[in-house]
Nucleic acid binder design. Structure first.
Lengths: 331, 331
DNA sequence: TTGTAAGCGTTATCAA
DNA sequence: TTGATAACGCTTACAA
């Protein structure tokens, strides 16, 4: 910067003004001289210094539990589009549902003074999250709310969506409906289970505890649970899988066992899959407004940065059932 | 930091030494006092300042053209695992194959003084890339080499893999084989086309130019081209699709036209899809070692940072054909 | 082993 | 409209 100043015959302060946002405080001829000098010298402002001066960076962190999950990449897309529009860059960080990696990610983002963080948390790092807020880093919870920490959040009405999916199965005549659940400590998993239960209650159907499973949000969990369910003396005639990855596991297990879908078993999944229509058979799902979730999350973040004292806002979006071929009347 | 120093009764320099890497220069009791003071005060080092001092950050940028593509998320996983192990964070940036967004991404990473950049480039930003190298930012090309700029790179033997896929079709008796190509200016697309041509040449089969299409790496391109191909007087009996997303478009078009796969048309795709085995029929593909590409890219970056003058290294991995159900003998 | 002080590249304040 | 200068929070000679 000093070099540019020397070449343009002005002070560094003027160079700064000319090259940063304050261009209107600089006379036209000086502006021109500075820009030319910068170009000739191949000068590039150092954001590191700029940010350090400002005390914050133009970065949003998006902490997700699985980059490989289309759900999160769609969210990332939405968030990135909004962030970019407002001059922020999006840093994606993958935790693999591992609290330690999540803690590391958060540490980096806080240390790097991210302007804001969007997080689908494992809910094991309450303190780190609390600290980030205390340090003035804006925080938005995505998909899962944060236990005991009221923050802006964007989520889907999980209970309602699950209720819709299971009611669809009940309407088709199914009464032995299994649920491939998520981790017990995941908010989303619990809410979806509640929707499953409510649908049963409303139809005056008893829930057989044997058909209620609990695991991870991974394909392997869907695979293992479905195998167990099929080995039952009185196996389910329908399966509701609470996560897109577990759904894939379910389908694999059914195929492996030679079960025809939906003749032998109906399947409805929570959250869509890019190739859902091309599967054999096309998969019935509850679709979540993933892109919109990302958009909303980034917008909440920006609002929070602009108005740090604004009241906490909890956005609740709704999912909708997409009936394709994997659900049918009970045999 | 000054507060911590005051509380621990030492100088800021000592605090710095105690809390950063130079712990061995500090006596045990002082070390303890400093750490306690830091904890009590909730002190978090400001990486912004640290990096500015160091002139570089502990960040790797990964610039990809499509976060929604499982190919890139798998690469990201590999790169992130290696980066993390070496104390770097991975910043993902999505360009949507848009040169302007790519330029912006690069600008941010250079300005942010990323320690290194891994990029699957559109090849429209040669100057920005050149500059990043000139500024000392390590650079590794992923998937696609950079025109006229020798850099470390990780890629797949596209021609060989395409050759294998098309030869497989030829062996099944097909002679009218269409290729759903990528953008003309994408290195990868050209190489895969060459593999397609070589397979024909070796089998003494003529290539019908009508069957050679060219488009984008998007689902819509596969859809549109396949529709056109099916409308031909003498349509192909097999289709080789050079990208996983276009392959999905191909399958959609075939389903829409009521074509049975592989009875009416065989399909082989380049690059695997997570649900490939569950599709109807299961999809035959050339699989790329995606995770390993990410690992290698990050390793090349680290090597380059450690040894800036090391000779350029171009890593070439090989794909392998996975035969599933979408290819069969000519009707 | 510890402290003093200079400096990293910016921007903001104040004065001219 | 411009310039001199003091921060921002940290690390690292150099000295003690």
């Amino acid at each position: 910067m000093a070099d540019v100043a020397a070449r343009a015959g002005v002070s560094v302060a003027t160079v700064s003004r000319a090259l940063s946002g304050e261009g209107r405080l600089v006379s036209a001829p000086v502006m021109e001289r500075v820009q030319e000098a910068a170009r000739e010298l191949g000068y590039h402002p150092n954001n590191l210094a700029r940010n350090m001066r400002a005390g914050t960076s133009r970065i949003f962190g998006l902490v997700i539990s699985d980059v490989g999950n289309p759900f999160f990449t769609a969210v990332a897309r939405g968030a990135e589009d909004v962030a970019h529009r407002h001059g922020y860059s999006l840093v994606l960080s993958n935790t693999d549902e591992n609290p330690e990696r999540e803690a590391t990610s958060l540490g980096v983002m806080i240390a790097e003074r991210a302007a804001g963080i969007m997080i689908a948390t494992t809910n094991e790092n309450g303190e780190a999250l609390r600290r980030s807020i205390a340090m003035g880093t804006a925080l938005v919870a995505i998909d899962r709310r944060i236990h005991g920490l009221p923050t802006d959040s964007v989520a889907v009405d999980n209970e309602g969506a699950a209720h819709e999916a299971v009611s669809h199965l009940i309407r088709l005549g199914h009464s032995r409906i299994a649920i491939i659940g998520g981790p017990r400590d995941a908010h989303t998993a619990r809410e979806r289970l509640r929707g499953y239960e409510r649908a049963h209650r409303e139809a005056r159907l008893a829930v057989d505890p044997v058909l209620v499973t609990e695991g991870t949000f991974r394909e392997t969990a869907g695979l293992a649970h479905t195998r167990e369910l099929l080995a039952l003396a009185d196996p389910p005639t329908a399966i509701f899988s609470v996560n897109n990855l577990t759904t894939i596991g379910v389908l694999r297990a059914l195929r492996e066992a030679g079960c025809r879908v939906p003749r032998d078993v109906s399947v409805v999944g929570f959250d869509d899959i890019p190739t859902a229509e091309l599967l054999d058979p096309p998969l019935t799902v509850v679709r979540q407004p993933t892109y919109r979730m990302g958009v909303q999350a980034a917008e909440l973040l920006i609002r929070r940065i602009l108005e740090p004292a604004a009241p906490v806002q909890e956005v609740l979006l709704t999912g909708n059932l997409v009936v394709r071929g994997s659900t049918g009347p009970r045999a």
